[in-house]
Design a protein around this nucleic acid. Structure first.
Lengths: 204, 204, 204, 204
DNA sequence: TTCTAAACGAGACGGTACGTCACGTCTTTCC
DNA sequence: GGAAAGACGTGACGTACCGTCTCGTTTAGAA
């Protein structure tokens, strides 16, 4: 737009032969991350990513045929930084710590914007929907499923309820993400208690 | 200048004075409904709505400045048809019936696609986000809030838990909608039980 | 997104790499010529040119940022066909022959309509005005200037009068063009005589 | 545009019965003058005139069916202020004085812009062309024709050359107007001499 | 006095064009 | 064969005007 194409230090990246150039890949991912972090879903365009990365559009489309693929790649790379797995031997505390960390991660890294973009994209194309449902979700909710499984092993919840509780947890987190209300950390604990099957409010 | 008025044998809708023409409004809404139902969020364009409605784009933008406004209008109009309020004096049954009706409504009317579009749009523009959060949500979740309030009055749940449970319910419903899994009605009851704070699985 | 590539049985012009495609350029120019010839200044739109050329609007705007540029391109291309330079060793005859040829050219090729369009456009935007004055005029009146210069060398007119006579000639030709009176060739000779500084009418 | 609808002192102009309201006419003409003076041919729109005049578009179209009519009306009204008829008993001086006055008038009143607009409009629609040629031109060049006729009576020029010289004069003045070069008054006299059939440069 | 006729403002209406942006595809040229 | 570069056709975006229309109001003159 008003982005000068970046001086680029005179160097021009080029092919390294008949295989993927990691520099190109890194540049693309970095540019995509920066862009989605800056402008969000609207304002994210392959053209602009190519411009910022100093990459050809063909290169991007070769490795990431759809925006969904790009968003997943961004999320995955960022997730390495990540969210620690708590282990308090108590489901409510585990979930509360984990959720709090995750929301902070979403707020402070482009990953949050990428996930919002991925979900938005999934409302329009079936490829993105499948990527979200079949490739993204199972992998990215494994941690919480593990915590729920452990809690079941400890007898805190029923084994049969694990999937329902997992859905509730995902739905709740997405709901906050999608409505831009990740900042309200205060209420997390009581909702986690609801999911765990408890109320933190004494039965008066 | 040069515009031949076109024979247009049929009939041409025109202004009825300095005020909104209900025929134009109806045509636009009908076209928008049809289009979003047919093509979903991607493939929904103001141009195409105008084309199908036989309306000028200006007319559409006059009454619906953003796509979000159009989606809300579609949803609102369709919602009149609607989802009955159950009254079983039992929270789990109320929620189960209501949710089942709602999902059927989402599947069988363009409203479902419109809501998906609204949520997607909200990921890109802050106007849409505000419309979703401040204009759409409170009004559209009032029914469930009423059911929860009634249950609290009956002593089934704590008053303090109402908002948490409402969030869980919305999050869960959206999650299913956004992942295209509204068809799995079977599991609704057990999830509603979780939200109500019960497990339908006996503690073995 | 969603764009089916369209069967398009025939053939579709496309990019030939990182450089201007001469086929596209030719198609655009041909369409523009045809359109301005058919409809004149009003009725000339970039949209319609794109439609007829089977070209994208972007392609047109890339090479011809304004309508003025397009008009100049049309004129220039057509002008190659052109108007022969007379050489009768007599200013009045030279001017008469040349002007007659030029008016015929204007009447029989889209170039005439293009020039009318260029002048009209120049009344609205300063870019077009500059293009007309600085890019179009000097080059396109060089022939007449040469004829006047030659006449001065022969002693038929004063060197100091060349520019004035050139202005008179351009003004007169434009006047006829702009008022749609290029058909009256009969009077050309006597006006050219006036410009040359003679009267063809005997001093009675 | 960013024009607040004008305080309007609470008063609102309205109909004064089954006949033209001179106030409305004046307001429209004033607004049109102001607008064409400010923005030129491009940027002149009936919508904007209506807005500034506080008039309905219907009112404007009733009295001025085309832009050409509006431009002529502006020119005519302004022309009342006007350009004095010189009488030096010498054609070159008469023409020089008159032309100088006229160009100053064109530069300092919206009339100049209106004429440019009228000519531009005439390149697009045949109604405007006819208005220009048959309604505007004869009336507006009568003064110069009179001066030429008087000169012929004095024996300065041939009667048969009057029309040719008139065309040269109109063409030259329009040429300067249309190329935005009315400021160069210096050269007027020598061109007028050329038209008169003299050269101010001594035959060396 | 009542009625009719036309002008007036307002602004909605179906359109067309504007100029820009993004899409995904295609070639060429260089490693 | 990977990669940068960037042109290509397509089509949506949101805005501006076009010229037409209907409305409700106002006034003057005719009945």
């Amino acid at each position: 737009m008003i982005n000068k194409p970046k001086p680029l230090a005179a160097k021009r990246r080029t092919s390294i032969g008949s295989r993927r150039n990691p520099e190109a890949e890194a540049a693309v991912l970095a540019a995509a991350k920066e862009l989605v972090g800056e402008k969000g879903y609207a304002g994210f365009s392959v053209d602009e990513v190519a411009r910022r990365a100093g990459a050809g559009k063909t290169t991007i489309y070769r490795w990431y045929p759809t925006k969904a693929d790009l968003f997943i790649a961004i999320y995955t790379e960022e997730r390495a930084v990540s969210v620690p797995l708590p282990n308090t031997k108590n489901l409510v505390d585990d979930l509360t710590q984990y959720t709090t960390s995750l929301w902070r991660f979403w707020r402070s890294h482009p990953a949050g914007a990428a996930l919002r973009g991925l979900i938005a994209e999934a409302q329009g194309t079936k490829e993105a929907l499948e990527a979200l449902r079949d490739r993204f979700l199972p992998e990215r909710t494994a941690d919480v499923k593990d915590m729920l499984t452990a809690a079941a092993a400890r007898g805190e919840i029923e084994v049969e309820d694990i999937d329902d509780k997992l859905s509730l947890w995902v739905g709740f987190s997405w709901f906050r993400l999608l409505t831009g209300e990740l900042h309200q950390e205060g209420g997390i604990k009581s909702v986690m208690a609801q999911i765990a099957g408890l109320s933190i409010h004494p039965t008066s």
